[in-house]
Structures are given as C-alpha cells and as structure tokens.
Computed example of a mutant assay.
Amino acid sequence: MNTATTTAQIDQAADRFARRVTARLTAGNDELPYDISERLRAARVQALAKRKLAAPVRQERTAPAVVHNGRTAALGWGGEGGNWWRALVSAVPLTALLVGLVVVNISQDEYGANEVAEVDAALLTDDLPPSAYADPGFVQYLKTANRPAATP
C-alpha cells in the first residue's frame, strides 16, 4: 500500500470525525445563551485559523519498508535517501562489539601468560632438576603417587 494513499485515507477519516463532532456541537448550540454561543464561534474561527497555518508545515515521513530480493528480505527506509547520522548511529553497536572483543582478547592473553609464568616459576624453583620432568618414569611416578593408598 502506498504511503500517500494511507495518509490521504487517514486525513479523510479525521475530516469525517471532525464533521460529526461539529454537527453534534452545532445541534446543541441553539439552546445556549447568546454570549456563550459567540465565544464558541470565536473559538471555532481561531481553531480553523490555526489548522490552516499548521497544514502546510506538515512533512511527509516514510516508515521503514521490507525490501524483497528473491527469497530474502531486509529492512529498508522506504526510498528515503542515505542519512549519514543514521549510518553513524548504526555503527556504534558494531564498534562497541569490536572494542569488547579486543579487551577480552588482551585480558585472555595476559591471563594465559601469567599462568605459564607461574608454572615456569614453580618448575625452576622446585628441588627437582628440569630433566626429571622429561623422564617417562617420573610421569608414571606422579600418576601412582597421586592415587590414594589402598586400606587393608
């Protein structure tokens, strides 16, 4: 459905409603005193003057539209030209995501380096020589030494 057609239909519905309200108000106008009916008439004239001034200022805005391309669909802006502000604002979440990924990567690298440094420091400050850790029998000894002893 075309946006201009929709706007025209909305305007027509608003005009029909305004005519019904005006007819109701006019029907009860005959029973009012003269001074009140004159004030109402002046208020109507002022309202019409304001409406006539406000009508040309009205701008046409298009709503986002779904753009079909084969079996896919994407949100578009209904033929509206490119807007640099919208592009800038839409880039903010992507920038935040990239900054977050960089921060996580840096912290993980630092954590991994600290962990390796602790293991190296423990190996170098231990009583055993580093060559003992490379011995296959030592690995077997560690596996059996960590197993709980059987109770008789």
Score class of each variant (00 low, 15 high):
2 N>P: 06
17 F>H: 13
17 F>Y: 14
20 R>C: 01
21 V>P: 00
22 T>D: 07
23 A>M: 03
24 R>I: 09
25 L>G: 08
29 N>H: 14
29 N>W: 08
29 N>M: 14
30 D>E: 12
30 D>H: 05
33 P>V: 08
35 D>T: 08
46 Q>I: 03
48 L>T: 06
48 L>H: 11
51 R>N: 06
56 P>M: 04
62 T>S: 06
63 A>F: 11
66 V>N: 02
67 V>I: 15
67 V>T: 15
69 N>L: 03
70 G>R: 12
70 G>S: 07
76 G>K: 09
78 G>N: 04
79 G>W: 09
90 S>F: 12
91 A>T: 08
95 T>R: 09
98 L>Q: 06
99 V>P: 01
99 V>M: 10
101 L>P: 05
101 L>R: 04
103 V>Q: 03
103 V>C: 02
104 V>I: 14
105 N>Y: 15
109 D>R: 15
110 E>L: 13
112 G>S: 13
114 N>G: 15
117 A>S: 14
122 A>G: 01
122 A>Q: 09
123 L>D: 01
124 L>W: 03
125 T>Q: 06
127 D>P: 00
130 P>K: 01
131 S>F: 02
133 Y>M: 07
139 V>H: 07
141 Y>T: 06
148 P>I: 03
149 A>F: 11
150 A>G: 01
151 T>E: 04
